[in-house]
Design a protein around this nucleic acid. Sequence first.
DNA 1: ACGGATATTAAGTTATCATTAACTCTGGGT
DNA 2: ACCCAGAGTTAATGATAACTTAATATCCGT
Lengths: 225, 225
Amino acid sequence: MDNISRKVLIADDEPDILEILKYNLAGQGYEVVTAKDGDEALDKAKRTQPDLIILDVMMPKKTGVEVCQILRMQPAFKDTLIIFLTAVNDDGSQIKGLETGADDYIAKPISPKVFLSRVNALFRRLNKTEVKTLQLENLTIDPERFMVQVDEKDIILAKKEFELLYLLAQRPGRVFLRNEILNQVWGNEVIVGDRTIDVHIRKIRQKLGIDCVTTVKGVGYKFQL
Amino acid sequence: MDNISRKVLIADDEPDILEILKYNLAGQGYEVVTAKDGDEALDKAKRTQPDLIILDVMMPKKTGVEVCQILRMQPAFKDTLIIFLTAVNDDGSQIKGLETGADDYIAKPISPKVFLSRVNALFRRLNKTEVKTLQLENLTIDPERFMVQVDEKDIILAKKEFELLYLLAQRPGRVFLRNEILNQVWGNEVIVGDRTIDVHIRKIRQKLGIDCVTTVKGVGYKFQL
DNA sequence: ACGGATATTAAGTTATCATTAACTCTGGGT
DNA sequence: ACCCAGAGTTAATGATAACTTAATATCCGT
């Protein structure tokens, strides 16, 4: 698993629950932010950009469902994980909640053990980046067609070149260590020299014609338009 | 979306999961039938003839894999969509599941959002699988007559050649992995060498006379005029 | 300017695909 | 039953693109 600290926002009006969940998540190495009502949740979500947002459905100011709807309308929160906490006999809101685009919901009363396993599972799933085309300004990367386009013009990349570019482009701006790249593109068992990466990077830069892969000396590479 | 009611059978021994999935599917307009073990699943499958069957792998009486195998042996369920629900750390069964002839599998714990999108995607794919003639510029592919025309001129393809071409042509541009091709055209149980695909591709290219199948080295083939 | 790191280039190596021919299997037709 | 024709598969060989390596040049921070 990666050791990048995951940020979690919890919004609930019951201080006890807030406390329990915070304690549990912190124990697993998560960075936790809390909010006690809908408005505060929205505010903190925007300011801290969490990776996961846990929303109680019944909250003052705005309900969890409302908060979720508002967040989902914003591109920044399109892919943020959202979990609802629902009271047991609250079927109506459960259904409605899921329709608004939550990734999961957990019924109260909450078992910390179950809670943690659900949260961990969500993050695990997030890591498995799904196959979908990336659109970055004038650059399109389509894994389905195994094809790259710059300004509408098709460009053919070889397998490794494509995989490498796709990896970097999935997280624009993020620096990938050489080791990370080797693991993701080549796999842990294959052993190739460091220069191999360079050569592929070169070919990508050459074929695309645009300067979108940046070298971070002594560290690795990143995608940057 | 089409307004034809799609019937879905869900089999799981956990009432919670049954409930969640049922609500979600019902919310999307699906007609839902449930079963709590393998035998009940078989029984209800036969009596209700669902369009999609969702099977928990771990169930009393009969496992999902067993149910799937039994169903697949019957002509009536040859083309029924089947999805497995698998426990998180159960990679072995996932692979085995797909080999038994499931169309997809979803790992527990289930994210409703992901779940629905997968189900919808399957049905979307099913629609496209409908037998209909494809018209691509000067090329016509008619599965009804089992006939291909290039510039008004009839061309006779053998069964496998035709199926292969038809598969590729259904999603022009999209790359089909060799494994995908093997599964779709030959079926999961048949084992043939990799070169077999090449030979059929060659015959297609040869007979059609036009360059419409592109090789993506190390990946697969795609239809491209 | 020096050392470490990456860029570049060309050349070597390997993996994968194309092509051909031979072989098996099946179903008609006699 | 036999033979034949076509479909499908396999195996062998050659071609080529992809990949890797190695050698040399260049960059960049200290």
